[in-house]
Design a protein around this nucleic acid. Structure first.
Length: 466
RNA sequence: GGCCCGUUCGUCUAUCGGUUAGGACAUCUGGUUUUCAACCAGGAAAGAGGGGUUCGACUCCCCUACGGGCUGCCA
C-alpha cells in the first residue's frame, strides 16, 4: 500500500500565532488535505519558562478561525519527554552517543578562545571516545556521535539538494544534564512517532535538518520529505516584527478580513499555480503542491490582501456572510444583531457584498439596515439635507406612498420626478440616501427602499423632512 | 569568522535556453455611474552587478554586492 501523507504544524507556545506561522500551518494543511492525508498539531512546549497556556489557546483559536482543522489530539511535546530520553539512552547503549562531562563553563571558555584565535568554534568533546571507566561521578549530557567525514544531503522539495559537510556538524547535545531533551531530539522523535511523512516548515530550520538527519540515521528511521519555505517579511522587506505586520492572526480577524480571503492571499504568497490569483478552497486543495512554492521571502501587501478579501466577500453566499459578519461583530464586542437586523441584513446582503473588502466596510454600508429611527445623519450626510433638499424629499414622498414598491416602479417614479424638475437624478439620490441611511456610502437608494419596506422608508423620510 | 539559502515591474508572481519577458495588486489617463464599491479602455513599470558556457541566456556555472538563516545544555 502507498503510505498516507502526514504533515504537522508544530508551533512553540511563546506568543500569538503570527502570520508567518499561520502560512506555514496553511501550507501543511493544504498539502495534507489536498492529498487525502492527515494534518497533525503538536505544541512544542519544552521550554517551560517561555511556554504559556494562553499562547497555546491563542494558537488554537487562530487556527480555528482560519479554518485549519487538525486530526487527532493536540500533542504536547513536553509530555513526551520520557520517550525522548528513552531514545537518547537507546543511542547511548548502541554506541552512537556518549556521555559528555564537559561543563558549560569549559565549553564557553573553549569557544571564546577559538573565536579569539579565529579558529572553528565547533566544540569537540574529549569524552567522545573516553573509556567509561574514567567517567567521573558528575552530571553529564548525552551527545550524539556526529560523522566526522563525508557529507549530508538534505533533499529538499523547495530548496533542492542542499549539501552540508559533516565536518561542520558537531556532536550536538540530545539530553541535557538535567535529563530533559533538547529540541533537536524532540522534533525527530515526535515526527517519527507521529508518522510524519512530510515536514513543511520555515527555512530557518534548513540547516537544522542536517543535524536532525543524524538522529534519523542513527536510529535507522525513515527521513521525512523536507520542504523549507522562506519566511514572510514585512512591507518594508525586513523581518516581521510587531512594528509592521507581525500581528497575531486574531488581529487580522479583528480588522475584519474574511478567513477565506486570508487563506487565498496567504496561499498565493510564496506559492503559485501559473497566473491564478483568486481561487476557492476547493481549487487550492486541488492545486497545492510543493513544486509551486517559491524560494524567495515574500512581503506582506495589505492592499492586495484587501482586494482578494473583497473578491471573496463578493463571491460569498449570503447566509454564510451574515453568519461570519455576526461572528465578527461578536469577536469585536458589538451587540448581537436583533432578528429585525438579521432579516434586513440578509435581504441587503446581495447589494452589500459587492461593495466591501472587509467586514467593517460591510458594516458601514449596512448601516441603513442596522440603524433605528430616528436616523442620525453623519456630518457629510447632514450637509445634503439642507432646506432645499428636504423640500424635494417632501414633494417626492406622496408619490412614494402610492408606489407599487418594486424596483422598476421606484426607479420610474424617481426618474420621472427628477425629469419633471429638470434636475439630475443625483440631486435627488443624495438627499434620499442621507435620509434613509444617514451616510453617504450606501447601496443603491432603490435597494435600500426595497429592503426597508414602504412604511420604514416613509417614516425615515418623514423624520428627515420634519 | 565559518557554513547554508535567497535576489524578475513599487508589491505578489509566470517563465522551467529561443517570448515584443506575461498576469495580479497598487499607481497614472480616459470612460461609465446614484454615493461607496465595482466595471470598461489605455499608459508607465522588472531580470542586483561582473565574468563565463552556448549559435542563443532571466533561465546553467563562477565571483562580487545586498538580504536572510544556522553556528546553544533556545525552539
Amino acid at each position: 500500500m502507498t503510505s498516507q501523507i502526514v504533515t504537522r504544524f508544530a508551533p512553540s507556545p511563546t506568543g500569538y500565532l503570527h502570520i508567518g506561522g499561520a502560512r506555514t500551518a496553511l501550507f501543511n494543511w493544504l498539502y495534507a488535505r489536498g492529498q487525502g492525508g492527515k494534518f497533525l498539531l503538536r505544541i512544542e512546549d519544552t521550554d517551560r519558562a517561555r511556554s504559556t497556556p494562553e499562547a497555546t489557546e491563542a494558537i488554537l483559536k487562530g487556527l480555528t478561525w482560519l479554518g485549519l482543522d487538525w486530526d487527532g489530539d493536540v500533542v504536547s511535546q513536553f509530555d513526551r519527554a520520557p520517550r525522548h530520553a528513552e531514545v537518547a539512552y537507546a543511542l547511548l547503549s548502541a554506541g552512537k552517543a556518549y556521555k559528555c562531562f564537559s561543563t558549560q563553563d569549559e565549553i564557553q571558555a573553549f569557544r571564546d578562545a577559538a573565536e579569539a584565535a579565529k579558529a572553528s568554534t565547533l566544540f569537540r568533546s574529549p569524552w567522545r571516545d573516553a573509556d567509561p571507566a574514567t567517567h567521573p561521578d558528575a552530571p553529564y549530557v548525552i551527545r550524539i556521535k556526529a560523522p566526522l567525514t563525508g557529507e549530508t544531503v538534505i533533499r529538499d522539495k523547495v530548496q533542492g539538494d542542499v549539501v552540508i559537510k559533516n565536518a561542520q556538524l558537531d556532536d550536538m547535545v540530545m539530553l541535557r544534564s538535567d535529563g530533559t531533551p533538547v529540541y533537536m531530539l524532540a522534533v525527530v522523535v515526535d515526527d517519527h512517532d507521529m508518522g510524519v511523512t512530510h515536514v513543511i516548515r520555515g527555512d530557518d530550520h534548513l540547516n537544522n535538518a542536517a543535524r536532525q538527519m543524524m538522529i534519523y540515521e542513527a536510529m535507522g528511521w525513515d527521513v521525512p520529505v523536507w520542504s523549507h519555505i522562506p519566511l514572510i517579511h514585512g512591507p518594508d522587506g525586513k523581518k516581521l516584527s510587531k512594528r509592521h505586520g507581525a500581528l497575531g492572526v486574531e488581529e487580522y480577524q479583528a480588522m475584519g478580513y474574511p478567513a477565506a480571503g486570508m487563506r487565498n492571499y496567504l496561499t498565493r504568497l510564496g506559492w503559485s499555480h501559473g497566473d491564478d490569483e483568486f481561487f476557492t478552497d476547493a481549487q487550492a486543495l486541488e492545486w497545492f503542491n510543493l513544486e509551486g512554492i517559491g524560494r524567495a521571502p515574500a512581503r506582506l501587501d495589505f492592499k492586495k490582501l484587501e482586494h482578494v478579501c473583497g473578491q471573496h466577500i463578493a463571491a460569498g453566499e449570503n447566509a454564510a456572510l451574515l453568519h461570519e459578519l455576526a461572528a465578527f461583530g461578536q469577536a469585536t464586542g458589538m451587540p448581537a444583531f436583533t432578528d429585525l437586523q438579521k432579516n434586513r441584513l440578509f435581504e441587503a446582503m446581495p447589494h452589500l457584498k459587492e461593495r466591501a473588502k472587509t467586514f467593517p466596510e460591510l458594516l458601514e454600508k449596512a448601516h441603513f439596515a442596522l440603524a433605528e429611527r430616528p436616523i442620525v445623519p453623519e456630518e457629510k450626510a447632514a450637509a445634503l439635507l439642507d432646506d432645499v433638499s428636504r423640500g424635494i424629499l417632501k414633494e417626492l414622498t406622496p408619490q412614494l406612498q402610492t408606489a407599487s414598491w418594486t424596483r422598476d416602479d421606484l426607479e420610474t417614479i424617481a426618474n420621472r420626478f427628477a425629469e419633471g424638475r429638470e434636475m439630475k437624478f443625483a440631486r435627488l439620490a443624495g438627499p434620499l440616501r442621507a435620509a434613509l441611511a444617514g451616510k453617504t456610502a450606501t447601496p443603491s437608494v432603490f435597494d435600500m427602499m426595497l429592503v426597508l419596506g414602504r412604511d420604514e422608508t416613509l417614516a425615515r423620510l418623514s423624520d428627515a423632512t420634519g
